[in-house]
Design a protein around this nucleic acid. Structure first.
Lengths: 403, 403
DNA sequence: TCACTTAATTTAACCCTTAAAAAATTACAT
DNA sequence: ATGTAATTTTTTAAGGGTTAAATTAAGTGA
């Protein structure tokens, strides 16, 4: 009936409880056995048994006695704080954009212990080349540690298990398969993931979005969408993709989109679209230029001065975005939206138009009052989300893989 | 971390295995212990123990020896076929439409043992009245059995746990709360569910849709959408609703929709929209008439004769529907679609337009070749889906509720 | 030093599963 | 008719996991 194998062996129970306990350490950091017992709703005895195994396996370690903790509870046998062992395993979390590769090495508690970033133009490289470039970058860090998993955020469609990229605007046809090559060369698990999905994953750990239902909208070279519904990342039936950007906003005589159709939301709200309109270029042709954060910042400056092409470009972007959100909210219900990326810098200038357009197009006339916020550092969020995925994978291995 | 309580008690293991075994009986009907042991991947001993308990609890029963089964395997101790006890519990599955209430009493194996249908105009009744009407109808059947749960399919938005209707086009404001009244009057659990979601649930058991990803599109008094993604019913963050019907197909100067906006998909593809256009009425006003299946059939007849308003009405419906599907597929990936309801009778006349419009508006120019099929008897599917929900609820109770 | 407090470990009891042995029930050959 | 083989179901014994309770460990404070 259900696809996941049911738990019924006592062996499986033990594995579940290992994961349960590891998850508590991941969630709360340093904790004593007693605290874990309460948090995980397991008896003290079980926690003792499992932690002994986890200590033996090197998954957790005993903390150095902490002054503050000791002073806290005066009477009785003092608690022994345990924590995840940072050196247990390592994740390489990365982000591939159209002109750069960025990699971070993250230890088992989630601390970044090394990072490197390089300008690379991906679109002309094949899969083998991309894989080699990544490994060369990693070697140049001269680290003593061996990573156990790569997680790489990329713009484009990925399949649900993270094994391959189905389509990407920043990779050549032959470059799509770099994950295969990378895992062959490195002998290590490789997961590729949609960049917007990684941003959403990263934000999902923020206090602000703890109720677990929100959208991350990435406004840069295209419009990305990462959804969290009820604490779970949403993905399509077969692939990562939820394509907010290619919803048809204007008819076929609208502005030209990268996808070669006309009138998509992206053709109004992406960086190139905003830049195109602000510079009064032909909306029926695609600009050659790679729009940067500075370009957008300049447009925002101009728009703040008063009406003019720059202001109108941002208004138009807001209208398109509001339309896209209205349709999305119709299918998923309404929820908070976090805007990320270059274009998101213009959120305050855009917000009125977005809301107006959203309310105009949302079903049932019901006035919507969803929260819009803005997050900075899209790239950091992509890497952060990737490292979270990697750590989750390691936790699973730690819980189920061992004896 | 996860919201559902994890399994870790040995007690829970037994409950899980009870459900496992009950589910096999539900799925396959009569089965011997040996067969169940293989199907459920549990040892013969466990199956013996659990079945003994289930027999004691009256959840399953021993079948009358079956000739065919006996002749089957000649040697050895003959298998004893077991089956769900039809009289264990009963479900009332129903459907509420704008002008009728239809109820079926279903036994624990899923057989319909009684049914009643009445013309009732719901829109003027309050919650108490609706509840009373339902109970009166049920009483008039003079059955000896007491139902354990009501599951009722209704057009409109329901919340995810089935406890209330948030919005409905067929109920008055005060009528929305009839589920509360019904459960208070009957002292029995009441679940309200979206009609299209019930249709999808019903279809999900069909062989044809066993891979578990498809959409059911209900074309009648409005456009309903029921989604199955990966074998699981999809629902929004807070409510049932996935509103395919209120996606903006034409701009604000498009045809008038029941939701009072202009240009929605529903304003072109619902029964009243098709009828309005076929009769060359003003697209900016709503027709008073309640369109029936016969009305639609007549339009289809006319359309088959050749070009004219009827033919054009159906074309327009197809275009709007294709547009809606394109947007939905962008957010969810593409998958098979089953059309149900009055309007679905016109599927063969509409299909070309749907596909053309779909391919025109779907992202990435990729040519889509999803399957479109048509299912009849929307109402039967609603009731069937509801009874499935009810039986699933009973199975849970049978597995977890008992000692 | 000794009582008191709290944490962690150990123990004993219990539940569940499985594999293997035993019992039950039938077919078939002699 | 009777014994043997075949097959299903039940019973039994072993093993692993959990929990509550008892015990041990390790401090505080008078």
């Amino acid at each position: 009936m259900s696809k996941t194998k049911q738990v019924y062996l006592s062996d499986d129970v033990r594995k579940q409880n290992r994961l349960r306990i590891i998850s508590q350490f991941r969630l709360h950091g340093k904790k004593s056995r007693t605290e874990i017992s309460k948090l995980a709703d397991l008896s003290a005895g079980t926690v003792t048994n499992v932690s002994t195994m986890l200590l033996d396996d090197g998954i957790i370690q005993v903390c150095q006695p902490d002054i503050t903790a000791q002073a806290n509870n005066s009477h009785g046998r003092p608690r022994v704080q345990l924590e995840l062992n940072p050196d247990y395993r390592f994740v390489v979390a990365g982000s591939l954009t159209f002109n750069s590769i960025s990699l971070s090495v993250v230890d088992y508690v989630g601390d970044k212990i090394a990072a490197i970033q390089e300008k690379v133009s991906l679109e002309n490289l094949n899969g083998q080349d991309v894989a080699k470039t990544i490994l060369t970058m990693l070697n140049s860090l001269e680290m003593k540690v061996t990573p156990s998993i790569f997680v790489l955020g990329v713009q484009g469609l990925t399949n649900n298990n993270g094994s391959e990229i189905l389509w990407s605007p920043i990779l050549s046809e032959s470059g799509l398969k770099f994950a295969d090559h990378l895992s062959q060369l490195s002998k290590v698990e490789v997961i590729v993931a949609n960049d917007s999905a990684m941003i959403a994953k990263s934000l999902s750990k923020d206090q602000e979005y703890q109720d677990g239902t929100f959208a991350a909208v990435l406004m840069s070279y295209g419009i990305g969408l990462g959804l969290y519904i009820d604490g779970e990342p949403f993905h399509g039936a077969k692939s990562s993709a939820s394509e907010l950007g290619h919803i048809s906003f204007e008819g076929n005589d609208g502005a030209l989109c990268r996808c070669k159709k006309h009138g998509c939301v992206e053709a109004y709200a992406s960086d190139y679209a905003i830049w195109r309109r602000a510079n009064q270029l032909d909306p029926k042709s695609l600009p050659d230029k790679q729009v940067t954060g500075e370009d957008i910042a300049k447009i925002i400056q101009e728009a703040k001065q008063g009406d003019g092409p720059a202001r109108e470009a941002i208004r138009e972007a807001g209208r398109a975005m509001g339309f896209g959100l209205a349709i999305m909210f119709g299918l998923f219900d309404a929820f908070p939206v976090v805007f990320v990326g270059r274009g998101a810098q213009a959120l305050d200038l855009m917000e009125d138009e977005i809301r107006k357009s959203l309310n105009e197009h949302f079903r049932f006339h019901k006035q919507l009052d969803v929260s819009f916020t803005q997050a900075n550092d899209a790239l950091i969020h992509v890497e952060n989300g990737s490292s979270i995925i990697g750590l989750e994978w390691l936790d699973q291995q730690a819980a189920f893989g061992a004896s």
